[in-house]
Design a protein around this nucleic acid. Structure first.
Lengths: 226, 226
DNA sequence: GCACCGGCTCTTGCATTCATAATTCGCCCA
DNA sequence: TGGGCGAATTATGAATGCAAGAGCCGGTGC
């Protein structure tokens, strides 16, 4: 029994979805880029059929846009979409926080505390890359502790969509400090297992992020316009 | 400029997604049913290619399951999934309620009040079909008032997934009365534009629904097992 | 000189075809 | 008579082929 790899008998379109996902995350495909089916087929060594299936799937989650008879292009995220997506992510994170408070073990809290302290250390040292990595790990730990797979998947879908804009958003020092303060409050709420409070903090944290993205989008728009 | 009809130039897979959606909602395809590609192709008069594309899309939203080399079948919703989905829907409805409170016009509130009163009348007359219809209309009005298209789409996706179980769930009289009480509270919160309160009521309302579904699933399991 | 029209090419959308895995039915053997 | 093995059938997965629409280029008329 190869229960570990489960026989790696996935269909091509499924693998292609992941592959394209990865390309989008790596920034290999940028917002607005036109997607040429033949080119991608050649690159992956598959025929157009499974690739097209994968594109349809990505389109249904909003990652790419399909124009009839004009093909696919990577979705451009608009400020309106950001305004709509961040509150949703806030609501989902708040829910994850509440569930996590109710279900997480003491050991789990200790583990998150450890990651939190390390993250703050990276903040003090001014290492954004390491900070982001821990940040991400902490959020993942929240969702894992919430124990709601559907919630996690939904959240991750949205995360991929705003990934590009989140990464290009350069934190100003003030915003960064603000984020760290948010995280301190999260930690406190979690250690007290105060679900509603954690939910509120997470919601506010997402609001701050939204503001941050808007700021950096304002600068970005000027750069892109030239 | 045909801005009204936009020339109905949709691609086949897109229409097929809607068609299959409708079939699922109508109960024409029931949970667990095997989906025969050729049969559906014959029925819709299309070839397998666009149909398969549509199936992939539906699979990505969890409406159907694809087993490699074994084809598609309508997803069976499990009690665990229900436990996971209802809190998510609660969070999304709560967000919609908060946004609606902030944005809805007085006329919009009056319109919802009208629907609400009509719905309660149907409750008094013991007409579940008419009640459900108004119920649905009110929820739709909330989301419309929230003005967040992404939120609406996400919510609707989940709604379709639990549609089958929600419809088969026969309300007990007590549960029905409970739901009406919830709605009274929603109306009150909306008319006072008390977003947080409306959010709380909606969350609780969804909790009640979850309980209802579980009750009826308990009965349903006995029936299905025989 | 510029705008508009017609053909050409490239790409997409769908149908068809081919290969392979699963299922089913029948047969053989215990 | 029941269970297991094997071949035929059927369905799925992927590739290829074909028609139609979009974009591009050059030509022509004003």
């Amino acid at each position: 029994m190869s229960e570990a790899g489960l026989i790696s008998r996935r269909s091509m379109h499924d693998e292609l979805v992941d592959l394209l996902h990865a390309m989008l995350l790596r920034g290999e495909l940028r917002a607005g880029d036109k997607i040429n089916e033949q080119a991608l087929c050649a690159r992956f060594g598959v025929s157009r059929t499974p690739l097209r299936e994968a594109l349809k799937v990505l389109a249904s989650t909003g990652l790419i846009v399909l124009s009839p008879n004009r093909g696919a292009s990577v979705a451009r995220i608009t400020p309106q979409e950001i305004d709509q997506l961040f509150p949703i992510m806030g609501a989902l994170e708040a829910l994850a926080g509440e569930l996590a408070c109710a279900r997480i073990s003491d050991a789990g809290i200790a583990e998150i505390r450890r990651m939190h302290d390390e993250m703050v250390a990276h903040f003090r040292q001014g290492d954004p890359a390491a900070y982001m990595k821990l940040n991400r790990a902490i959020h993942d730990a929240f969702f894992a502790a919430a124990g709601n797979a559907e919630l996690t998947q939904l959240y991750h879908n949205l995360l991929v969509r705003i990934h590009a804009v989140r990464f290009t958003a350069k934190k100003s020092p003030e915003r960064w400090a603000e984020a760290v303060r948010d995280h301190e409050q999260m930690m406190a709420a979690l250690e007290q297992r105060d679900g509603p409070r954690l939910a509120a903090v997470l919601k506010e944290h997402l609001m701050h992020k939204s503001g941050m993205v808007h700021e950096s989008l304002g600068e970005g728009a000027a750069a892109a316009a030239e």
